[in-house]
């Protein structure tokens, strides 16, 4: 590293940025790893059924499977309905 680089280097430490981005995405993906493959399809099917009655967008439905202790799993379904006019 030359003297010039020394003054430049601390301004934009991209390695630190890379590490922070990686920590977030890796933690997120590890969380999803244990969920079954059918979950996205299940979410789509639920969305289609609700759409027969109410117009909602995909981000208003969240489906999560949580592994509780022992052999108990909880499927959590959250639907945000639009305000009635």
């Amino acid at each position: 590293m030359s003297l010039l680089d020394y003054f430049r280097s601390n301004k934009n430490n991209t390695a630190q940025l890379a590490k922070e981005r990686l920590q977030i995405i890796v933690a997120h993906e590890r969380g999803q790893r244990s969920t079954p493959d059918y979950l996205p399809q299940l979410r789509n099917d639920i969305l289609e059924v609700i759409r027969k009655y109410v117009e909602i967008s995909p981000d208003q439905v969240s489906v999560q499977l949580e592994q509780k202790n022992g052999n108990l799993s909880v499927l959590e379904l959250n639907v945000m309905l639009p305000e009635e006019k």
Partner: peptide
Amino acid sequence: PKRVNSGDMLSVDDINDI
């Protein structure tokens, strides 16, 4: 190591942390 020192590359410790 040169690029790690200048802050442009993930270090061994960074990768190990992740």
